[in-house]
Computed example of a mutant assay.
Amino acid sequence: MKKLFTLSQLAACAILAFAGFSAQAADVQGSADAGKGKVWLCIGCHSIPDYRADYPLVYKVPMIGGQNGAYIATALSEYKKGERKHPTMRAIATSLSDQDMADIGEYYAAQTATSPNNPLK
């Protein structure tokens, strides 16, 4: 039986594929305008001043308007990977693509700390 690829060739292909995926993820540019249509789930908690969630523990939910967009995208990515521990945020983040996270981050970065953060108004 003829081998199609050697182990070293397969490893090289895997490395190149991973490098391409990593470069693609790093090149994602967020759009505040696109993010406006993606924050519908966020506004249920993050647009209410002094809101406290009671699952899994009592947790003061931050208003995130004016926050750095890259920080928000990174935080969402960390929830998605399980590096940040909050079940509700993890469930939401797992449904988001890298593009969605970047867009949401840019949407909130374009807001102010006192803006209502509600694109539906």
Rank of each mutant, 00 (worst) to 15 (best):
residue 80 K to N: 14
residue 13 C to A: 15
residue 44 G to L: 14
residue 95 S to G: 12
residue 10 L to T: 04
residue 4 L to K: 07
residue 6 T to A: 14
residue 42 C to Y: 11
residue 91 A to N: 11
residue 28 V to F: 09
residue 73 A to C: 05
residue 87 P to V: 05
residue 72 I to F: 06
residue 40 W to L: 12
residue 73 A to D: 00
residue 35 G to D: 00
residue 104 I to E: 04
residue 15 I to L: 13
residue 73 A to T: 03
residue 99 Q to W: 02
residue 67 Q to H: 02
residue 8 S to H: 10
residue 34 A to E: 13
residue 17 A to N: 02
residue 58 V to K: 15
residue 58 V to I: 14
residue 120 L to F: 13
residue 17 A to H: 01
residue 120 L to N: 11
residue 18 F to Y: 12
residue 16 L to N: 00
residue 11 A to D: 07
residue 42 C to R: 05
residue 68 N to Q: 11
residue 23 A to N: 10
residue 13 C to F: 15
residue 3 K to I: 00
residue 52 R to Q: 03
residue 15 I to G: 04
residue 18 F to N: 14
residue 87 P to E: 06
residue 51 Y to V: 04
residue 36 K to S: 09
residue 26 A to N: 08
residue 34 A to G: 06
residue 43 I to W: 06
residue 47 S to E: 08
residue 12 A to Q: 12
residue 111 Q to W: 07
residue 75 A to Y: 07
residue 23 A to T: 11
residue 77 S to L: 12
residue 102 A to H: 00
residue 4 L to E: 07
residue 49 P to H: 07
residue 28 V to G: 11
residue 20 G to S: 13
residue 35 G to I: 05
residue 119 P to H: 05
residue 59 Y to V: 09
residue 50 D to I: 07
residue 86 H to L: 08
residue 12 A to T: 13
residue 97 S to P: 05
residue 57 L to E: 04
residue 70 A to E: 12
residue 105 G to D: 11
residue 80 K to S: 15
residue 53 A to Y: 00
residue 106 E to G: 01
residue 91 A to L: 10
residue 85 K to F: 10
residue 87 P to D: 02
residue 30 G to T: 06
residue 88 T to N: 10
residue 33 D to I: 12
residue 34 A to F: 02
residue 13 C to H: 08
residue 47 S to A: 14
residue 119 P to F: 06
residue 59 Y to N: 03
residue 28 V to L: 07
residue 63 M to S: 13
residue 118 N to T: 13
residue 104 I to V: 09
residue 67 Q to G: 02
residue 83 E to M: 13
residue 18 F to S: 13
residue 54 D to H: 10
residue 61 V to S: 14
residue 90 R to F: 04
residue 51 Y to R: 14
residue 83 E to S: 14
